[in-house]
Nucleic acid binder design. Sequence first.
DNA 1: ACAAAAGTGTTGGCCCTACACCCATGA
DNA 2: TCATGGGTGTAGGGCCAACACTTTTGT
Lengths: 229, 229
Amino acid sequence: MSFTYEYPRPALTVDCVVFGLDEDDLKVLLVQRAGEPFRGSWALPGGFVDMKETTDEAALRELEEETGVRNVYLEQLYTFSRVDRDPRERVVSVAYYALVKLSEHAVRAATDASDAAWFSVEEATKLAFDHDEIVATARERLRGKVRYQPIGFELLPEKFTLTQLQRLYEIVLDTGLDKRNFRKKILAMDLLRPLDEVEKGVAHRAARLYRFDQRRYKQLVKRGFNFEL
Amino acid sequence: MSFTYEYPRPALTVDCVVFGLDEDDLKVLLVQRAGEPFRGSWALPGGFVDMKETTDEAALRELEEETGVRNVYLEQLYTFSRVDRDPRERVVSVAYYALVKLSEHAVRAATDASDAAWFSVEEATKLAFDHDEIVATARERLRGKVRYQPIGFELLPEKFTLTQLQRLYEIVLDTGLDKRNFRKKILAMDLLRPLDEVEKGVAHRAARLYRFDQRRYKQLVKRGFNFEL
DNA sequence: ACAAAAGTGTTGGCCCTACACCCATGA
DNA sequence: TCATGGGTGTAGGGCCAACACTTTTGT
């Protein structure tokens, strides 16, 4: 079967920058390319947009097909359209970024990508196509957005300690934060529900666990509240 | 001539939300559709992306072809991909927004749009396709961005008064601002060059004119300065 | 002289920053 | 008992918000 048009059309793809958070590193999920071009290179998961799905749907679908990852925070990033970004033919790609709870997303190898693995964002370089640029753009967006939207929680387990949360901001913003000031500020927002539970398996005093209160956040937003840092 | 592909492809277009600023209104530049669908409706300027141009280039080209507007601040906004957003066939559109100095952009009618005109953003409703949604998205982006990037100046003449600048922020942010505090803050940034010139043709004390100092801004950014509000 | 907008300072309160020690726990 | 991170309060300074009157100019 084939399809004929009066004018030529670029191919349309999606690419996903999937971020995860390690003890002390921001990570990106990459797949190794099985075919040409860039065979063997690491690349962002992604693929062609079908005629009956939105680009959002395509991104979610490709993500699951290529990496097994699903049920994640996903947001459109930017559309990349350099004429020669794919050496074969004209391909325009709508890029997305996703935030996942690393602990809950063990990676699985999948059919149309020979392998998938987590890389420290710093090491994720020399990627196929213009994917280095896409990753850089996603990092900037994340850095910008994490300060005024409570999306960081998407990178943490449901239950987390304040130290974990602080580490997250330090890693993403690439800066040090004062422990007492951080705690004061974040607790003052009244968005974290303290649990009657502490972390386990540590060789020192166990920290209290908290949960992000999505419901409360939405209430506060309606009343004009603005999350910030 | 025709073009054949193994798999079907969505058509790819660009659409531009062009903002201008009136005495007391944010305006959008629209074109009236000459053909079906939505014949006679007002719509955003835009059109198909050629094979040898980026989407940025396509946006600039269409803008000039359809409205005569050129040499503007342009930024990619979002890619809209609802499957039925165009009743004829699958069309994915990369939306942009532009900021222009209204005074310097008299509108001209053009070939493939029967007419072009400025509308108050509030009146720009019932547009063709999903253009209402695109305009709404652009407004939100502008509101968000104007506070932490000095892009507002793109909407003003080269030489402007502090009152004009304040009006700009009041209109875009949809809020009132204190005159003394506004002046203190904006002048303290040291981004405005006072001119030895005043506005003309007003029936009261004439206000001093200022110019945005782009060079100075870039210097300050290098030293870690952050524009804000 | 009057109408209209330009231009200008001070104060109080809040929030942010800087900073160091004791506590609880497991090994 | 020791090592490790958990948890906590205060004081000073800077920044922001609130607020009203005088000046200039054209009609």
